[in-house]
Design a binder for these strands. Structure first.
Lengths: 335, 335
DNA sequence: GGCGTCTCTGTTAACGCTAACAAAAATTGG
DNA sequence: CCAATTTTTGTTAGCGTTAACAGAGACGCC
């Protein structure tokens, strides 16, 4: 099938120039007479010519495609990030190829990266929030532009990350400022750096206030696990403030508290993380921390492009500060 | 940068064969001696050779990439669909390139498709839930394999779609079966086919029961718009049952009803659509309709692949039936 | 034992583009 | 107005792969 479209030579013939001149026009080469340029443009338009990316990639050794490796692109965070990356990349003239993986283990990541490499992507963004992903990245060819997002801060790889620690600290501090004597935490899976960072920030805030952090309750990002933790929290009369590692956990907690008749925020205050669009419509509206996914996407793409252009594989690092969004799920404790 | 990796000829030299034999091994051509095959395999492994997709795409005229055009990949539906497509495609050895667009107007869609075509994708999946997208698709080159998802049922383009009508009918019928005298509807944006289908199904169920459908209240998929509609519904004492076009609208409605002290499901029953993972943790747990995104992805990919292989551009059509998920947000009306 | 047939392997020519160089045309300066 | 320069255009040679064909053995059969 596929009656192949016109090629550069067809355009050249129609415009009465050599194919190389067409190439020059296409690539914005300076030394082309204005009149020629227009003639070529007209021919391109008339034929509906579309440059062949494969041929270009073959000869330049590099396509205008950026590969993204991510795990669960259904989760709000990854999905937002992916969408933002795609937008930003498109503005720079790059397409985005997704290689999502079921598990973030060494083998899966490597396989996904391999797939991208075999397509000769210009660079790769790995959304690598867990430990095992880091290992995979260490064995990667060093000559491929690479940026990790929300990955391991301790590895010598270019990294863009939401400042989880600062966000969690702000959330916890917000609760302390409201007058709470301590803050409990429902965490994400502990093999995610995001979780670790948020636990850290929460702990830091408590320690700075001279408080002894209670044991964090481990969740798995899902509302279901939040619900389970919430059932336990509801039974503990001393609990007046909870910080959850994301908004969906918070939703589960809210639901459990509601079921147990513990009113939010009158008896217990809750703060989430992510600011999913629905958070403002939880019962009650959820105070949360909003990471700026657009900023993360912009930063990582910029970092990647500078690697692509310069050819140097610097180990930069950039941190995006999140913002606290205060809503009605926080109030002073009853005395 | 990028010390280019080994090429086929390097493998050939090491294995002591011609590059063509390497190509044959790679493509699983039958007439290769077992011994030779092994030698080539060994050489490939030793050099860490990776076939160059660009070169292959150039000569075959077709890459192992499928382009997906979608609008808002942050929404739960599109995100799930995209993830499922990616998974399925990966199993078939295809990569997925995303071309998300800000608006689903004619120009944006065409531009996204153009981008994909210039990369010589093997086929294109367009998640085209609005009218204007259909127009764009009509002007597309006919020789490129194309499948639309949740698009216009009236256009002669291969289409896979969730059976919105059946889902909405089931939701509405479920409420009628519970004893409600009528069912109100908070719809999605009326230029989405999904919305239109859901309105249709709702209306059909009411008409079949000999009821006069009340005017649907237009939302925009967001919890915010659901909240606004919910505020109105809360003030109408005759309302006992509401079907919303998605779960986020339902969340907004639930919140508004809660604020007005109208208890769900005791005073008002609510049914949503989508079964987002959090729906089971709304207050109360939301009865909803679950579309099978995996099935949609599988069907569309299969349809696309058969077009790619056969070369024929048939105008098939496939409908995926959604399932009602009963939870606690529905109860008989108080009398 | 020679000849057709099959199986395996090699050779050559594209695919459509860019890079490097070569040639032609236009421009400048004396 | 001619040589020296600069600008513009053309020519050629790959990039790494597959496809088409050609050649070399191995094998069977009369």
């Amino acid at each position: 099938m596929a009656v192949h479209g016109p090629a550069m030579t067809d355009v050249a013939r129609l415009a009465g120039v050599s194919h190389q001149t067409v190439s020059r026009v296409l690539n914005g080469h300076p030394n082309v007479r204005e009149q020629t340029r227009l003639r070529v443009r007209a021919a391109i338009a008339e034929l509906g010519y579309r440059p062949n990316g494969a041929a270009r990639a073959l000869v330049t050794g590099r396509s205008q495609v950026i590969g993204v490796v991510a795990q669960n692109t259904t989760l709000y965070g990854p999905a937002s990030l992916l969408a933002a990356l795609e937008q930003t990349a498109a503005e720079e003239g790059f397409a985005v190829s997704v290689g999502s993986v079921r598990n973030l283990d060494h083998r899966s990541i490597s396989a996904a990266v391999e797939r991208h490499l075999s397509h000769r992507v210009a660079g790769i963004v790995v959304i690598a929030p867990v430990e095992s992903a880091g290992e995979a990245l260490e064995r990667l060819p060093k000559d491929v532009p690479l940026v990790t997002v929300d990955g391991d801060p301790s590895r010598p790889v270019p990294l863009v990350t939401v400042d989880q620690v600062a966000g969690a600290r702000a959330a916890t501090q917000h609760l302390l400022d409201a007058g709470h004597r301590t803050v409990w935490h429902v965490s994400g899976p502990t093999d995610w750096f995001d979780s670790v960072g948020r636990i850290d920030g929460w702990r830091q805030a408590l320690l700075a206030a001279g408080l002894d952090p209670p044991p964090p309750m481990p969740g798995d990002w899902s509302a279901a696990s939040g619900y389970r933790c919430g059932q336990m929290l509801a039974r503990m009369p001393e609990v007046t403030a909870v910080f959850t590692a994301n908004d969906h956990l918070a939703l589960g907690v809210l639901r459990a508290l509601h079921e147990f008749g513990r009113r939010v925020p009158h008896e217990i205050s809750v703060v989430g993380f992510d600011d999913v669009p629905e958070a403002a419509y939880f019962i009650p509206p959820l105070t949360t921390v909003r990471p700026d996914f657009d900023a993360v996407a912009r930063a990582s793409l910029q970092m990647l492009l500078s690697q692509i252009e310069s050819g140097t594989g610097g180990a930069l690092r950039q941190t995006i500060a999140p913002a606290l969004v205060a809503r009605e799920s926080v109030a002073p404790p009853r005395r």
